[in-house]
Design a protein around this nucleic acid. Structure first.
Length: 542
DNA sequence: TCCCCTTCCACCTTTGAAACGT
DNA sequence: AACGTTTCAAAGGTGGAAGGGG
């Protein structure tokens, strides 16, 4: 399956876009974070040029913004729950022939724990230690730039869990914490990949994708938005289609009032946390409720709006103000050599074993520099699945820069279209590795241990979470990877040849990427995510 | 009592195979 | 035989509700 049409997919394409061109550019050549020198070879320049030219546009940005304005919540369950809205991007500017790996990690947005009180999110204390970072690698990875650019890239099968011992490779999060997904694009070209001296990658952050993880929805507006927009939740929508029709005729943004919301609002209006907020009582009639929703999502909403005064809770936006954060890094990291002999030994041992796995998930470095680094992580059973969407030529052709982005097709709320420059964190990093030698996409705990030891030794993890436990987790992860190396190699273009395709060395680029991320992005993010923290009053329900 | 979490449920969409038609 | 369309059942995603635990 080459294309995957998401349940929420509409034809409007991208409502907004982010481009690095308008953002802040920062070189890590002399960065105290990296402490390494910049690159100067022509190859690197070519590489970084390619990377720097990559632009990523968040799909359904308007929808994301709607959620963001209300304070996005994502359900996390023991079995794993998908994100909604799902993370989908349009990528441009890649070298069509170069192979890239696209992956996502989700990092804490701050070090607070939150609670939903008085209809708004408030800081409830210090965050619990971050879970072991995991990466979700797009199942199409690695693929050529033309492949990525041809279609919408969807990460909708990414799942979130609160199970700290999750065996499926889902991204582990703490409930009632705030998180920020990040998209990483790793260059995986044979000539500039794992074995080359420099591997380039870039990181894109869309602040509107920030969310608070919950085990059940706290904000009824989020519940309503999910029910309205997620087809799988259609069963919770109101049964009277006339409501929807009338609401659309009246250009209501929230036309559908579910039965559950009606119940919820009834309760809230009497003794719930919303009772003191002047909520309209839905029992007064749908029309009134619709008006109320319209009002709630009008200009008075505070969180996530594009205005400069908002988002004290959102550290990203607060720090970077309105737009795009273009972060360009490159480094020469001589200390980041791979331990190939260790990897080989692992591979030898791993070749005969198999277990469940998923080529999508990797362990990713937590955002704080004191936290541990994890190797690649794959766990989910099943064949490689395409998660890309086709977009019309018009859509693609219309995307050039942020400013040039056409207004979205008139969906629910054209009035929400903003000219504020989208916001993206973009980094380019190159690193020196050992010469390329093909080997399956596995990480070895042995290889990782020194790093883990050094990192965890200064971590703030709870006492029970030593690097030894990390080692065990890594071993499990590697076990999962072993199976995935076969599933990962499936090729859609030539399926008949893909079944026994040798393990792709490209995946190692992702692994390599983790190395670099653990030292650069994590520390970088610790700066990005920690700075500018303020009150949380603005992420409220008004 | 409150808050958070887990589990189960009904309802729904998605998916893919089978059947059928061209 | 190849290809496209339709049908249908299974799989899986969804929020709500109830109940448990700290």
């Amino acid at each position: 399956m080459l294309q995957e049409k998401g349940p929420s997919e509409s034809q409007e394409g991208f409502a907004a876009a982010a481009a690095p061109a308008t953002g802040h550019t920062e070189s890590a050549a002399g960065s105290p974070i990296l402490g390494v020198a910049g690159l100067s070879s022509s190859q690197n320049q070519d590489s970084e040029q390619t990377i720097e030219n990559i632009k990523v546009y968040l799909h359904e940005k308007e929808l994301w913004k709607k959620f963001h304005e209300a304070g996005t919540e994502m359900i996390i369950t023991k079995a794993g729950r998908r994100m909604f809205p799902s993370y989908k991007v349009k990528v441009t500017g890649m070298n069509p022939k170069t192979k890239y790996i696209l992956l996502i990690d989700i990092v804490p947005a701050d070090d607070h724990r939150y609670k939903f009180c008085d209809n708004k999110w408030m800081v409830a204390g210090k965050a619990e230690p971050a879970m072991p970072g995991r990466l979700y690698v797009h199942p199409d990875s690695p693929a050529s730039g033309s492949h990525w650019m041809r279609q919408l890239v969807s990460f909708q099968k990414l799942k979130l869990t609160n199970n700290h011992l999750d065996p499926f490779g889902h991204i582990i999060l703490n409930s009632m914490h705030k998180y920020q997904p990040r998209l990483h694009i790793v260059k995986a070209d044979e000539n500039n990949a794992f074995g080359s001296k420099n591997t380039a990658f870039c990181t894109h952050v869309f602040p509107e994708t920030t969310f608070i993880s919950v085990t059940s929805y706290q904000n009824h507006k989020i519940t309503q938005l999910k029910i309205e927009n997620n087809p799988f939740a259609k069963g919770f929508r109101g049964s009277d289609d006339s409501d929807l029709r009338v609401a659309r005729l009246q250009s209501k943004e929230y036309p559908v009032i579910s039965k559950s919301i009606m119940r919820q609002r009834l309760v809230s209006s009497h003794h719930g946390p919303l009772s003191g907020k002047g909520e309209a009582n839905p029992l007064h009639g749908n029309h009134q409720a619709l008006q109320h929703y319209q009002y709630e999502n009008g200009p008075h909403v505070q969180f996530g709006s594009s205005d400069a005064q908002d988002l004290p809770l959102n550290t990203f936006a607060a720090q970077r103000e309105s737009g795009l954060f273009y972060h360009c890094l490159k480094r020469r990291e001589s200390a980041c050599h791979l331990d190939l002999p260790c990897k080989r030994s692992y591979l030898d041992a791993a070749s005969s074993s198999a277990s469940m796995g998923d080529d999508h998930y990797f362990r990713s470095p937590p955002p704080y520099d004191q936290q541990m680094l994890s190797p690649s992580y794959r766990s989910e059973v099943g064949p490689r699945e395409a998660c890309m969407y086709s977009t019309s030529g018009a859509e693609i052709g219309s995307i050039s820069t942020v400013e040039d982005m056409p207004p979205p097709p008139p969906p629910l709320s054209c009035n929400m279209w903003t000219s504020v420059a989208p916001y993206t964190s973009y980094s380019v990093q190159t690193m020196e590795t050992v010469p390329y030698q093909p080997f399956p996409p596995h990480f070895t705990a042995t290889t990782m241990m020194p790093r883990l030891s050094s990192i965890t030794s200064q971590s703030s993890q709870p006492p029970g979470e030593s690097h030894i436990s990390v080692y065990n987790q890594l071993s499990q992860a590697q076990g999962r990877e072993r199976v995935l190396s076969s599933s990962y190699s499936r090729e859609r273009v030539h399926p008949s040849l893909s079944e026994r395709k040798p393990p792709s060395p490209h995946l190692n680029t992702a692994n390599e990427f983790l190395y670099s991320q653990s030292f650069s992005l994590s520390r970088e993010s610790s700066l990005q995510y920690h700075a500018g923290m303020g009150t949380v009053d603005n992420w409220s329900d008004g």
